[in-house]
Structures are given as C-alpha cells and as structure tokens.
Amino acid sequence: MSRYLLRRLLIAIPSLLGISVVLFTVLALAPGDPFEELATNPNVPAEVRANLRVKFGLDDPVAVRYVRWFSAMMQGDWGFSFASRIDVDTLILQRLPVTLFVIGSSQLLALLIALPVGVYAATRPYSLFDQIANTLAFIGFSLPTFFTGILFILFFSIYLDWLPFVYRADISATGWRWYWEHLRQAIMPIAVLGLFQGASWTRYVRSAVLDVIRLDYVTTARAKGLGERVVVVKHVVRNALIPVVTLVALQMPAIFGGAIVTEQIFRVPGIGSLLISAILANDTPVIMAVTFVFSCLVILCNLLADMLYGWLDPRISYR
C-alpha cells in the first residue's frame, strides 16, 4: 500500500513538471503585459516601465525565466505578485480558508442532497418521488451557476432583502453574531454551488444504485430475510458508491473552476477571484501559482479516488 502510494506520488512529479512547462509557455506567449497601465498612462515616463521590466526580469528569454521560476519554486519561493508586490504564497494563504470553507460546505451540501435523494429515488423507480426528484435534478444542472447566482441575489437580496450579497471575509462581530453573519452571507454562494453539484450527483447516484439493486446478491440478501434498511445501506449503497466516488473526486478540481464565477458574483475573496484579477492584470507569478495549485489538486484528487476504491471494494488491491 505505502509502496503503491510512493510510486503514484513519484509518477505525479513528471506530470506536474510537464504541466508547469506548458502553463509557463502559454502565459509567456499570451498577449499582455503586467505593466500595461504604465504604458497607457501618459504621466509615467517609458523608462519607469522599462526599469521595472528589467528589475522583474521580464525581458529575458522564456527558457531563462522558466528555469529561474522553477529553481525558486524548488526552494519554496513562489515569487511575488507584480500587481501588489506581495509574496504569492501569502496571497494564496490569505484566500485559501475562504475558498475551502465555501467549496467544502457546498460539496457537503451537494452530497447531503444527492445521496439520500438518489438512493431513495432508485429504490422506488418511477414513483412520484422519483419523477419529482428527476425533474428538479434536470432543472438544477441545466441552469449555470452564474445564472442561479444572479437569480438568488435578485430574489433574496433585492426583492426580499433577507440576505447580503457581498461576501466579507472579516466581519467585525464577535460570538454568536459572528457565526450568524457568516452563515447569512455564505448561504447564497454555498447554495448556488451545492445545488448545482447536488443535482448532477443525484442522477449519478440514482443510476448507480439502480444498476446494483437488480443484481442477484441483493435478491439473495433479501431472501435471507435481512431488513430492507440493511440491504440498502450495507449491500447496495456500498457497491453503488464506487463509481460515484470516482466522479466526486474527479470533479473536485472542476468545482474550483465553477467557484471562480460564483466567487466573482458574490465577491467571495477566494482563490478563484484571485485568479481572475491576476489574469486581468497579467500578473504572471500569481496566475502560475494558482493554476499550479489547481493542477496539484487534480493529481491529488485522482490519487484520493484510487485510494478510496480499495477501501470500498476490498477485491481491488494495490501493487
């Protein structure tokens, strides 16, 4: 097991290296200049911009810049943002807790909806409950998050005036009020992400459970006189979950992507909004670091999915 893990981690290194090369080249080839604003501002003499470019090493060939970036990265130096001149790791660490909280809660919400609804619908296929759940799931994953986000804002914030729609990471309240304020402002972004994700997962859970529930061993279990609860939870769901786990794990990074839009709409100061503003400002070190973090997440989530397989299905062994 641990040898397998080690091998997988070692394999991840060349893939990350390849990803970083591709990212760096694409960014270097893309149009734009972090000091764009200096160029278009007539107050600023051209030398200032030229000086900055030399100082930050932007005029060197791509290969040289890549090697410099890579060796610094190896020593744990992520570079600093051209826009704010702050170290990139500080920037990311500042944003990470908010992203983890919002994404984590929305995933939890999605699972809390998808699992019970999917399983219940599959045990009673084509019942009224199943029909309704199906319809809602279709609606849920057909509506993109930016649309539901704005819809939520218009309804809950502007029409009803219940919830704030600007997310503030630091709320100057203490005790219960602090939790209450946080909850109030987080409800909408979490709901938007969670419902979207939950809707598509419901469909997967339902079909996975339907596949399993018809198998002979389930009939055997029922014939043995086991209660319906035990049959479903211990025999059906555990086996049905295997494909679902892969899906959840593999979709994790995509959710970070979906959160970029949601973060922008609700002004959630997470990694996604950091990436957007960095892209708009052509802030290469930040774009590099954030996309690199995302690619690490993809690889890690893949690994996590594989590890979970073994736990769910003991027949799978790691060599």
Binding site: I153, S157, I158, D161, P164, F165, V166, R168, Q264, I265, F266, R267, P269, S273, S277
Partner: peptide, 19 residues
C-alpha cells in the same frame, strides 16, 4: 471592499443599502 462588477456594486448601494 473590492471585487465584482459595476452593476451589482450600484445595487449594493442604491437598492439594498448594504454599502
């Protein structure tokens, strides 16, 4: 506070009074 877009910023002041 920063971020978002101009329309919703106007909303936060003119419609909800959050800012």
């Amino acid at each position: 506070k920063g971020g978002g877009d101009a329309v919703s910023a106007a909303r936060a002041v003119l419609q909800t009074g959050e800012f």
